[in-house]
């Protein structure tokens, strides 16, 4: 009985430690410190819960650009109608610490010369 209990505990611990993909998107701990600029064409856009995302194609590679939750994203002026597939967008923000991960979190998105400050306090003063 005791041995069975120990075995079950060991199984539970084993199951609790699966190898999972890199964590993303909550906070900035997963991103590089310095800012990064990405220019690409829009593949798709989602402005909604739990947070908005923009997929940009850059030289044949699709990048996932994370924005803010829908509230702050829309407050910046950026909605799903702001861009459509094929539009050129410049995303300024912080990219993933993992260089193989094509993912960044944007603080500012520029579309046709108009800037949308998704995280205004993180945009460096011009």
């Amino acid at each position: 009985m005791r041995r069975l209990r120990i075995l079950l505990l060991a199984m539970a611990l084993g199951a609790a430690m699966p190898v999972l993909p890199a964590l993303a998107h909550h906070g900035w701990a997963w991103t590089e410190e310095e800012l990064f600029e990405l220019t690409g064409t829009v593949k798709s856009v989602f402005v909604g819960n739990p947070h908005a995302t923009l997929d940009l194609e850059v030289e044949g590679v699709v990048w996932r650009v994370e924005l803010a939750p829908p509230g702050p994203t829309v407050a910046s002026g950026f909605t799903e109608e702001t861009v459509k597939p094929g539009d050129e967008v410049v995303a300024l923000g912080n990219r993933s610490l993992d260089p193989n991960e094509k993912r960044m979190k944007a603080v500012r998105v520029t579309v046709g010369g108009k800037a949308y400050d998704i995280y205004p306090t993180r945009v460096p003063a011009n």
Partner: peptide, 19 residues
């Protein structure tokens, strides 16, 4: 069961971090 259900919880939690 005692292994499976907490694993479901864990996988579910990770779902929210990979999208």
């Amino acid at each position: 069961s005692i292994v499976l259900w907490p694993t479901v919880l864990l996988v579910g939690r990770f779902l929210g971090f990979v999208l």
